Amino acid sequence: QGDIVVALYPYDGIHPDDLSFKKGEKMKVLEEHGEWWKAKSLLTKKEGFIPSNYVAKLN
């Protein structure tokens, strides 16, 4: 089961498979690959890669 993270900063995706998000948006982490994680937005239901240093895990 994936962790839920919250965006600390907004992110505008650079690549087509990036997931753009707004500050405060919550996402479910699907896979962790070093600095880039695959996640699904709980708001938009879209999936893509996010920079892990832009988010914090919720406990």
Rank of each mutant, 00 (worst) to 15 (best):
Gly2Cys: 13
Gly2Glu: 10
Asp3His: 15
Asp3Thr: 15
Asp3Asn: 13
Asp3Met: 15
Asp3Pro: 10
Ile4Glu: 05
Ile4Tyr: 08
Ile4Met: 07
Val5Cys: 11
Val5Glu: 01
Val6Asn: 02
Val6Ser: 04
Val6Gly: 02
Ala7Cys: 05
Ala7Tyr: 01
Leu8Cys: 10
Pro10Thr: 14
Pro10Ile: 05
Tyr11Gln: 01
Tyr11Arg: 06
Asp12Glu: 15
Asp12Asn: 12
Asp12Ile: 15
Gly13Ala: 14
Gly13Tyr: 02
Ile14Lys: 13
Ile14Cys: 13
Ile14Asp: 08
His15Ala: 10
Pro16Val: 09
Pro16Gly: 08
Asp17Thr: 12
Asp17Gln: 13
Asp17Leu: 12
Asp17Asn: 14
Asp17Pro: 07
Asp17Arg: 13
Asp18Met: 12
Asp18Phe: 14
Asp18Ala: 11
Asp18Arg: 09
Asp18Val: 10
Asp18Ser: 14
Leu19Val: 03
Leu19Tyr: 02
Leu19Ser: 00
Ser20Trp: 05
Ser20Gly: 06
Ser20Phe: 05
Phe21Gly: 00
Phe21Pro: 00
Phe21Trp: 01
Phe21Asp: 00
Lys22Gly: 09
Lys22Asp: 08
Lys23Leu: 08
Lys23Tyr: 08
Gly24His: 07
Glu25Phe: 01
Lys26Val: 14
Lys26Thr: 10
Lys26Trp: 15
Met27Asp: 01
Met27Thr: 00
Lys28Thr: 11
Val29Leu: 15
Leu30Arg: 03
Glu31Met: 08
Glu31Arg: 07
Glu32Phe: 14
His33Leu: 11
His33Ser: 09
His33Glu: 06
Gly34Trp: 05
Trp36Thr: 09
Trp37Tyr: 15
Trp37Met: 15
Trp37Gly: 02
Lys38Arg: 13
Ala39Glu: 01
Ala39Gln: 00
Ala39Cys: 13
Ala39Gly: 05
Lys40Asn: 04
Ser41Asp: 03
Ser41Arg: 01
Ser41Leu: 04
Leu42Ala: 03
Leu42Gly: 03
Leu42Arg: 02
Leu43Ala: 11
Leu43Lys: 10
Leu43Cys: 11
Thr44Val: 02
Thr44Ala: 03
Thr44Glu: 03
Lys45His: 15
Lys46Glu: 09
Lys46Gln: 11
Gly48Ile: 02
Gly48His: 02
Phe49Tyr: 13
Phe49Ala: 04
Ile50Arg: 00
Ile50Met: 04
Pro51His: 05
Pro51Gln: 04
Pro51Tyr: 04
Pro51Cys: 07
Pro51Met: 05
Ser52Asp: 04
Ser52Pro: 12
Asn53Ser: 15
Asn53Ala: 14
Val55Lys: 02
Val55Met: 05
Ala56Asn: 06
Ala56Arg: 13
Lys57Phe: 13
Lys57Pro: 12
Leu58Arg: 05
Asn59Gln: 12
Asn59Cys: 14
